[in-house]
């Protein structure tokens, strides 16, 4: 049903665009005719050419928009199905012929996820199946501290690489960059042994934060940004007797603020998506991060049943990400697109 609505709207939009196109082309043709009325042959010919061009262009537009609309639907369908399933009743989900839109909208699935007391009353095991707020709290603690730490290490390293001339700078930076190509799986085994066996980091927050306090990619990104700041600014500051550290905090960081915001957002989103490492070093349910909690809450005992609850939980996990995206779209998209343009 909704698909039909989307398609119809798309067709209407396309039709409007085409009509607008035709009108402008016609005006152009009249304009041409008005400009050189004595040359009748030219005008007719121009009309002919314009008509042919117009049909070609219209066809091209139709193909283009249809292609984009179809793929946009493909992109949006999972989101749609998630929300619709979460709003259906258990009985409606179990129908052999599923409905594309819930007949009866129920909020009980969302209540189950968001209201711990309600969830408790429905579970028999005596503990929460999916403790959303605990998971969110864990994720935020890990995310915020690792973001702050990453910002500190990144700013310092980027400053050294872009502003201080020291022997071996290029070599060290190249080695840093080379590590980006190495898959993380090469590091994870010794890291696991070191953190769990020697440092007893199992089920602790710091074990989820410290190994990820450094990111070569962000250092690279920020270094590019710092290098764009003209040297003259630095000399001027030096003449005024500014120290290196003061220059860094008063001039370079404010100039590079957009990049720092981008880094923070990407890093926070990263901990929201962190899966493997937290899974390995946590064994207690109350220390899990949100992705692990989501995966592990809805597998073993209940299998594919309670789809509505699963989808409500997935929606609850996605909601903060989407809110951040809506508010800070500019920073996210710029940060991501920057990575493709090599400086």
């Amino acid at each position: 049903m909704l698909l039909a609505i989307i398609i119809i709207t798309a067709i209407i939009i396309i039709a409007l665009l085409i009509s607008k196109l035709i009108v402008t082309k016609k005006e152009q043709a009249f304009e041409n005719a008005r400009r050189c009325p004595e040359n009748k042959y030219y005008v007719e010919n121009a009309d002919e050419i314009i008509r042919r061009e117009k049909t070609l262009k219209t066809i091209r537009y139709i193909v283009c928009y249809t292609f984009l609309v179809l793929l946009a639907i493909f992109m949006l369908v999972p989101f749609y199905w998630m929300i619709v399933t979460a709003l259906k009743t258990e009985a409606e989900i179990e129908l052999v012929k599923p409905t594309l839109f819930p007949k009866v909208i129920t909020w009980s699935n969302f209540r189950y996820i968001l209201d711990a007391k309600y969830q408790m009353s429905l579970t028999t095991s005596g503990k929460l199946q999916f403790d959303l707020f605990r998971l969110m709290y864990n994720t935020l603690v890990v995310g915020v501290f690792s973001t702050i730490g990453t910002l500190v290490t990144t700013v310092m390293a980027a400053f050294a690489f872009s502003r201080i001339k020291f022997p071996g700078r290029e070599i060290i930076f190249t080695i840093f960059l080379a590590t980006m190509m190495i898959p993380g799986e090469m590091m994870i085994i010794p890291n696991y042994i070191v953190v769990v066996k020697y440092l007893h980091g199992e089920n602790t927050y710091w074990a989820m934060i410290v190994p990820f306090l450094i990111s070569v990619y962000y250092i690279y990104l920020l270094r590019q940004n710092f290098r764009q700041i003209p040297d003259e600014l630095y000399y001027a500051a030096k003449v005024d007797g500014t120290s290196n550290l003061k220059y860094l905090f008063k001039i370079m960081i404010p100039i590079a603020m957009p990049t720092l915001i981008t880094i923070s957002i990407l890093k926070l989103m990263g901990s929201w998506n962190a899966y493997v490492w937290p899974m390995m070093i946590t064994s207690r349910d109350d220390m899990r991060l949100i992705s692990n909690g989501l995966r592990q809450s809805f597998t073993d005992s209940e299998g594919r049943s309670h789809q509505g609850r699963q989808m409500a939980a997935a929606a609850a996990v996605l909601a903060p990400l989407l809110i951040v995206f809506v508010c800070l779209r500019k920073y996210i998209m710029r940060g991501v697109s920057r990575s493709g343009i090599k400086g």
Binding site: W81, N273, L294, F298, A314
Partner: peptide, 21 residues
């Protein structure tokens, strides 16, 4: 914006959605 939307999602959450789709 629509085409960028899948970038800001949680892999596990959307994977579960796909398994239900």
């Amino acid at each position: 914006t629509v085409f960028f939307l899948p970038y800001v999602t949680n892999t596990i959450a959307i994977g579960m959605v796909f398994s239900i789709v």
